[in-house]
């Protein structure tokens, strides 16, 4: 029976997990009174659904529709003047959602904040390019890698993959290797589809033996002339032992005896 692999997540998985194993969690600390982070959460008010500190950075969960306002407040009132990173995490298989995060930096306080929001599969997100120009490339990359549409982006186009690429590579449904379109992309593009047979599929094994290659390989029991075309299958040649047509030295040593 062929092994079942779920189609919604084709990434590598642990081959064995103990039934009773429960993953520990990275500790989440509450935002303490009188700290810088407490002021940030207070400035945003009810827009923050959940706020905690994880590994020294404030994480705030917000509503996806409010991302522009929240980040504007963070930039203008709380001094978060740099957007270091912006990307997404694919949770489509489990929850049917993408998780988007914005990593912001306050230069004066040397503090970092991560704004997290979730959107459904076909929803779009508002662009923050008017606030942070660094999001221009970051949002384009997110669109390229996940297919998440960004509203009001100045130039939303594939950035890393070629324009005629099919699929969004960082989705969990996209395999690391073996995608049909991806594996033939360069052959189709340069030589055309009709050259697929000539070039052949991707072969990473330098020690691979092609049984129909009569120039470099030979098969024992199927001797064929050098360079002969055996693509239809080679003709079997019965193995002949020297005993059948030559002098059998083992059985009868008469001739030898005569010579002596």
């Amino acid at each position: 029976m062929r092994k079942y692999t779920p189609k919604d997540n084709v990434q590598a998985k642990s081959y064995y997990t103990d039934r009773f194993w429960v993953a520990p969690r990275v500790p989440k600390e509450a935002v303490e009174e009188g700290t810088h982070f407490e002021k940030v959460v207070a400035a945003l008010g009810a827009q923050v659904k959940e706020a905690y500190i994880q590994v020294g950075q404030l994480v705030m969960h917000i509503e996806a529709t409010e991302n522009f306002q929240v980040i504007k407040i963070l930039k203008e009132q709380c001094g978060y003047t740099q957007c270091s990173e912006q990307s997404a995490v694919d949770y489509l298989a489990k929850e049917g959602e993408f998780e988007l995060f914005y990593q912001l930096l306050n230069i004066n306080e040397a503090k970092r904040v991560r704004v997290v929001c979730r959107i459904k599969k076909d929803e779009a997100i508002e662009s923050i390019v008017p606030l942070f120009k660094s999001a221009n490339f970051a949002e384009r990359e997110m669109f390229d890698m996940f297919g998440i549409k960004v509203n009001n982006h100045p130039f939303l186009k594939r950035i890393i993959m070629p324009d005629d690429w099919e699929g969004h590579p960082l989705l969990k449904t996209y395999p690391l290797q073996g995608d049909e379109f991806a594996s033939w992309y360069e052959v189709d593009k340069i030589f055309g589809k009709e050259y697929r047979n000539i070039i052949g599929p991707e072969n990473r094994d330098p020690a691979r033996i092609d049984r129909y290659d009569t120039k470099r390989f030979s098969r024992i029991g199927y001797e064929v002339p050098f360079g002969a075309d055996i693509s239809g299958g080679e003709t079997e040649q019965p193995i002949e032992y020297s005993e059948t047509f030559m002098v059998n030295y083992n059985k009868s040593s008469k001739q030898l005896d005569e010579r002596k």
Binding site: A23, P24, R25, V26, Q54, V59, E85, S87, Q103, R112
Partner: peptide, 25 residues
């Protein structure tokens, strides 16, 4: 452990950071 982390470092080119989301796998 399950959780997420963003750790910045100062590489020769600038801020090189890794954001890792772990599901305990």
């Amino acid at each position: 452990p399950k959780g997420e982390v963003y750790a910045p470092t100062e590489s020769p080119k600038g801020e090189l950071g890794f954001y890792i989301k772990s599901e305990g796998e």
